[in-house]
Nucleic acid binder design. Sequence first.
DNA 1: GCTATCTTTATCGAAAAAGGTAAGCTGGCG
DNA 2: CGCCAGCTTACCTTTTTCGATAAAGATAGC
Lengths: 96, 96
Amino acid sequence: MVDDAEKKLLADAGHRIRETRAAQGLSLEQLARLTGISAPALSLIETGKRDPRLTTLKRIADALRVAPATLIADGPGTVEPSASSSAGGYDLGEYQ
Amino acid sequence: MVDDAEKKLLADAGHRIRETRAAQGLSLEQLARLTGISAPALSLIETGKRDPRLTTLKRIADALRVAPATLIADGPGTVEPSASSSAGGYDLGEYQ
DNA sequence: GCTATCTTTATCGAAAAAGGTAAGCTGGCG
DNA sequence: CGCCAGCTTACCTTTTTCGATAAAGATAGC
């Protein structure tokens, strides 16, 4: 449960990074120099095999000239507090 | 340069998390149970002393019922590819 | 086939995240 | 005052990121 959704998130973010990088005609090595993150590390992130830190994500976003949020915008998942109804996913219930 | 902007990013995200959590009347322990992240770890993140991983951020966002992007939306930094002009900040130049 | 470029994978060492626990620290309340 | 709830900080252990490097795919062109 936990792992599944998270892997999708990482694969998604990685895919978005790769798309943005490719759109700018940058190679992994070029992005590595811009970000200070090694090319192998970038490869792992882009292929969803690594769980990057927030600052790592930010450095990539900066190098690509996009907002960090752009890279992780979980398209569909964005539940958006539209239906913040009382029937939310979980309400702590027993835990409170 | 690196450290300064990054600390601000972490402090900012942490502040946003704390605001959101407080707005929902949740304690650190309650959020800890919802996210599976320990309360001490959450405290460090909220005070900007820790650089969370992407999945960690996602779990917090999920528990708070907000989009992950909401928590890191770097207000001003959001350059938005409006002026993606050729006169960008840096063009790799010597590095390519 | 060979070569160059890009990417992926593997290994190693250092640094850091994260859980757990425990110890402080603050404020409110009886 | 003592007590409690909430948050912070410190220590420890395990896991993971990350850089560096090297090696191994994968294409494309000579």
